Amino acid sequence: MSRFSPFASSSGPWDPSHRLETSWLLPPALLAAVRALFGIYIFITLIFVIAWDCEQASLGGCATAGDQFSYFTVLTYWGLAFYFAVAAVHTATYAFTGAALLDRFPRALQHLHALFYSTVTVFPFVVTAVYWGKLYAGPWFPVMFDAWRNVSQHAMNSGFALFEIVVARTVPQPWVHIAGLITLLALYLALAYITRATKGFYVYSFLDPAQKGGSGLIAAYVFGIAVGCALVFAIVQGLIWVRRWVTETKLGKDGKFAHADRQAVDIEMVQPSKA
């Protein structure tokens, strides 16, 4: 691994220059505020959608609202909400003390946070591509609420992910994260069929074996989404590499650090390279 990797050895610091809590563009306090703002918006959207659905008695009311938790779109949107909330806390503690709360976590949880980062920079693009490419058939939503809900969950989600790719100082993540992402997709597939068994409906029509093409077409869709997920991960890796090359190598913007953290860059630069 390069000297810029936050994934240090078990005896060294986790993220020597706090790449997960800093930006090349925004000071840490402002980055924490933006992440918190994104998290608040996503939480408000999710809660408002639940409340709205509960009020629509003719459409099933709160039973329909509960069905939302069977949809990959909604689950990944909750993931975004919690990521930004957690990331805001870690960034704020770094901004005001020079040491992120994440630094005090067990190494296993630090690795899980890195995987969390990979999920929120990959799954939103998968959701956006599948929804607008496969599920959305038009015409545009006649009810403004439906338009807002779908734009928030199927378009702005990718905008939030792009912010983390472009503005943060993160490095390309370990390629083993692909296995973690595919495992999460497999677990969701199991949830989708549990929903069919317990609630009697398919969350996505292409998972129905009664459709034209049967099980073979389902396998093709599932395989295609898994391959697409791996491809998106590779593209995200490339975008992060390009952002680092442009901002750090070409523009010389090493990052904006907390006042209490004067040795951030120096500590990272002297870390020995890991094979």
Results as ranks from 00 to 15, higher is better:
Y202I: 01
A179E: 00
V203Q: 09
W52E: 13
C62H: 09
A186E: 14
S17D: 15
T195V: 06
P209W: 04
F69A: 07
L181G: 02
E55G: 13
I44Q: 12
T45H: 04
C54N: 14
D261Y: 12
I165E: 05
A57R: 08
L251G: 10
V89M: 12
G79W: 00
A260P: 00
E164D: 13
L187K: 11
G159L: 12
V246D: 11
W140I: 14
F123A: 12
T195Q: 08
P272K: 10
F160R: 06
Y204D: 13
E21I: 00
V242N: 10
I50W: 10
Y117D: 10
L231V: 13
G60K: 02
V222L: 09
Y94Q: 14
A33E: 07
V74K: 03
H111R: 13
Y193T: 11
V120H: 06
W241T: 08
V222K: 03
L217Q: 14
F96E: 13
E248P: 02
I50M: 07
D67M: 10
G180C: 05
Y41D: 11
V130D: 02
F84R: 01
V127L: 06
E55F: 01
D261H: 07
S9T: 15
N150C: 10
P139I: 09
L181M: 06
A129V: 07
R104T: 09
C229I: 02
S152H: 08
A95C: 12
I178N: 02
A100Y: 04
G214N: 09
G216L: 13
V126G: 03
W245C: 05
P172Q: 05
L181D: 03
Q237F: 02
A260Q: 12
R3W: 09
A190Y: 09
S215F: 09
S2V: 00
A264P: 01
F257T: 02
W24E: 12
G216C: 12
D53Q: 06
F7G: 10
D254R: 07
P16A: 09
V265M: 11
F43M: 07
D67I: 01
D67T: 08
I182F: 10
A179F: 01
E21R: 04
G224Y: 00
K250W: 14
T119N: 05
F233E: 01
T128V: 08
S9R: 15
G238H: 06
A137D: 14
E55V: 00
G60C: 03
A95K: 07
L31G: 04
F160K: 01
A147G: 14
I165Q: 10
M144W: 14
